[in-house]
Design a protein around this nucleic acid. Sequence first.
DNA 1: GTACGATGA
Length: 749
Amino acid sequence: MCAKTLRLFHENRKPASLRGRSFKRPNPGRYVEISDDERRPKKKHHKHNGMNGSMPNGKHVSSKKINGLVNGTTVVHMDDEPDAAPVASSSKFADIQRQRTNLPIARGKEALLNEFREYDVTVLLGETGSGKTTQVPQYLLESGIAAEGMIAVTQPRKVAATSLANRVAAEQNSRVGSVVGYAVRFDERSSADTRIKYLTDGMIFRELMSDPMLSKYSIIIVDEAHERSLRTDLLIANLKTIQQRRNASSEGKGKGKEKERLKIIIMSATLDAEKFAKFFSGSKVIYVQGRQHPVTIYHSAQSQVDYVDSAMRTFFQIHTDQPPGDVLIFLPGQEDIESLEKSIRLYASQLPPDQQEVLICPMYASQAAGQNAKVFNTTPSNTRKCILATNIAETSITIPGVKYVIDTGKCKEKRYLAKNTGGGFDTLMTRDITKSSAMQRAGRAGREGPGFCFRLYTEDSFKNMSLSAEPEIMRCGLTSPMLQLKCLGQQLETLDLMDRPDMDSMIAALKTLFLIGALDQSGEITQLGRDMAMFPLEPVHSRAVLASKEYGCTSEVLTIIAILSASSNLFVDNSDQRDAVAESRRKFKHASGDHLTILNVVRAYRDVALSENKSGRREWCRKHFLNERALLEANDIREQLQQTCERLKLDWKASCGERDEPVIQSLGHGLVMNTAFLQPDGTYKQAMGQSTVKIHPSSVLCDKKVPTIVYNEVVYTNQIYARTVSVISKSFLAGLGALKTTSDRPALD
DNA sequence: GTACGATGA
């Protein structure tokens, strides 16, 4: 390959437009197309001499320019004014209203409303941000279709729910929390006046527990349904039966009962529409045309084995040949981001001095928040920003100024491997992205003007990609959803889902729930199980909290569980400074293992928090390689858990002082199936399963050869590793029945 | 002898 010219990109002959090509309408007669006739005129592309140029490593790359629009829309820029003044000055308000009427969806307003009036379920197709998510709820409210009920708009992510509510409140010239409100975990703004409520799908699923018919709402809009998040799938399944019951009971009761009826609107990207339409028989599919700046897509001519190296070469090709504009590179994970950062730095330092500077911004969820925020800083003059990001930049965060996207075509995906013993493993594997993901990534180049996307895979690879990701419910552990459904009197096994998970995963979840006492032998939920479902935690964790009552150590257990269930890791890890990280961790080390080590860290942080200000605390965390975000989030979680404890009459202040046994034994009640005993070769054999696990090298117990262990989770990489490990006494395990043979347990299948 | 895609309650 080194001798001959590497032709990286080739011409993509047809525009990758969705309309009429990739997207086939299953039944054209059922569709209403609402589009603007005079589409935004395509701007003439800046004429340049193709993409020819020599790369820093001497390799020659060439390709031709093509035209092509990626896919719909994105006209409303949610990030523009997330905190617009509640009562805007008249000119600003007029400006907002002008923007509203300029949206493509505005022209179809009356046609849309007619469909909403007529059909109980509508599937509304169009890209995220086309205006449908902000406008449709307002149209429904203003037209009176919602009657006296509320309109719920569900979102898979918290930031989306809050920023949408802010935007729509501004459009209604009101303050968030009055007519337009939102509800996400740890943050709610709504009042008796609230008619449009943006909330996370997890939030509305929780509401089912106290209001199984969701009677407050007359219209429920499920947005981003194509993402098929676990909670969206569960919500959709429930909405179907709720609607059947509500609309059946409101028949023949006259007009006054109109608000009891429920209307459902499913909003999705254009792929996969038929599945939703099929699931809701009698639904109407509506297609909303959107618009976006054109994005020119290049595919590589040959498949690229080393995508990090290709990304580096492509970046410099853009940097040396192309007009200003920031570059966004999609990579699967932190490791690749770090290695690409190094090589770009190395080559950038060798560029001739008349070249623009390169500013590299790595971006991934586990990175410190301050580092991630750097992408939003304005780029210094004579500098090109190069953002190296994971999937976080695909949906969650929108970065302004991006004109070029480099797409490696890879992402990481978690998968749960069910074991018939109850506990399974999570694995994280790098895999090819899907078509919808590829289009979403390309679309990131066309938010502010015409853009370019370089795909480091061939056009054939693109064609062979699956349409959209496998629904989350098919690839994750099910103990928590199964328990919540049991609480609602439902069975995951028989629920009318769009996709049903494997039997193995469901059996594993049933066994786990039985072993921790949430279900009895016949699979019925126990009182203990109902108490467990009250906590916003994984059942194995809520079991530990409940067990702490007998041991008088709820305070300690809550602290540990809050950290374990925070979304980011407490210990930051940086491959360069591994030794320093290990050294600093030793200061907090507790002989019994990682759980009490965590407790030591939180206690130390609390002491620091008493004497230091915000920056002092941050500095202390940085010095000790601790993720302050995890500590802050855990603090919020702990407060929420305390409230749940109060409802259950559980004294959350109960403390066992410096004793460690009570804490570990409480955890043991929840993590029964996550126990193992030492074998002669130094590995551990699971007490409840056949697998052999090793203690993860990051554990304080690694190489300590303690006889029996309890651990928070297993991750399968090259080997099966137990993470967050503590010593547990053998007699305690025997008492739990964890060392008995599997034949003692009743058959659950 | 070493993992860390993204979410959510």
